[in-house]
Design a binder for these strands. Structure first.
Lengths: 184, 184
DNA sequence: TTCCAACTGTTGAGAACTGAACACATTACG
DNA sequence: CGTAATGTGTTCAGTTCTCAACAGTTGGAA
């Protein structure tokens, strides 16, 4: 891709996240973003239709980065390493993900993450021979919701424990239900 | 000016100074600069004919910035405030000016600065009624050289004292000769 | 209310930058 | 020695970004 596009989008996204932290989504204007990013106002519209679209794309990008990080650090999507990888990445980029998960985005980010996690869980569970459509649905959403809940709690409370500790705790909780599902 | 030009030149200059500190002028290639600045190699040639030209323009730019800083902080070019302003600016941008003054640039920067200072001194001295072409020449170059010498010593020894101290010391040295020239 | 300032979203012409290619020079290395 | 690798400086068609202008909307102060 043309490096101008990459630079422009990166600049816009970064300044957008900064502004999100400073004044909240409502009060952000396209002018603000353009000014901060040192970019012509019209250029913003070449990449995003409006600031809602920018928020969407921003969330999408950070979901992408999160998944990419996991793919690099863990072979499977559902093992101890993968979980810890997620927690570590969120910890490292705490400021951004705190914003996306809680204050702003009004659930968009959570929903996207939920869908992705649910998909991964589904793949693991439905691969098992003793699968049953109904009980599977319950299990999948129980596990997914549980995981997202832990994650939100951890971020909302400003990572009160280390990534390793939360991973261990979470795996401990998971064990009784899914001994045969999650590879350690 | 088109903001793309400003951004491009700024990026090139910054990376150039970084590389200057890292490997020295000789070993820098246009490829290095383009890569670091995240810019197409050809674009470098749109702004600078080669790396020597880049060094020239770099020096010129930093001379410009130095003068601009002085203009903002002191009304006259030759008073106590102006001198301190220079020392303060050099101190703040120590890394860059150390490079330009000493290691690289092989005297270009010094010469440019010398000319500018000499010009200022000349204007002050020749405005005095008792001016005399010959003795003026001696005085001008004695004062200019003295000032540049102090400045080089201060930078080469990594600013061994504060900007205020060096200014005071310098003005003290200056006093006997130019009591009637320099306004305090 | 009216007015004013700020923001939005769009357009067009033109400038800056892009990648890719080119021929040529210099350097490193078997 | 040859030759492979790396760097130089230039060109070109195509893309992105810029500035300036536009009409329309919104929100707050007089």
């Amino acid at each position: 891709m043309d490096r101008r596009i990459l630079k422009t989008r990166q600049s816009i996204m970064n300044m957008f996240v900064d502004l999100l932290a400073e004044k909240g989504f409502e009060k952000i204007t396209i002018n603000d973003i353009a000014e901060r990013a040192n970019i012509n106002r019209g250029t913003v519209y070449l990449h995003y239709v409006d600031k809602f679209d920018l928020l969407d794309k921003c969330i999408e990008t950070h979901i992408e980065l999160l998944l990419q990080h996991c793919a690099n650090n863990a072979d499977n999507t559902l093992n101890a390493r993968a979980f810890q990888s997620i927690f570590e990445y969120l910890e490292k980029n705490f400021a951004i993900y705190k914003l996306l998960l809680c204050n702003e985005g009004s659930g968009f980010f959570r929903n996207r993450l939920y869908a992705i996690v649910a998909q991964s869980v589904t793949e693991v569970i439905c691969a098992k021979p003793e699968s049953n459509a109904f009980s599977n649905g319950v299990t999948i959403h129980f596990l997914t919701s549980g995981f997202i809940g832990v994650l939100e709690w951890w971020i909302n409370n400003s990572t009160p424990c280390s990534a390793q500790e939360i991973t261990e705790q979470f795996l401990l909780l998971l064990e009784p239900y899914t001994k045969h599902l999650v590879s350690r």
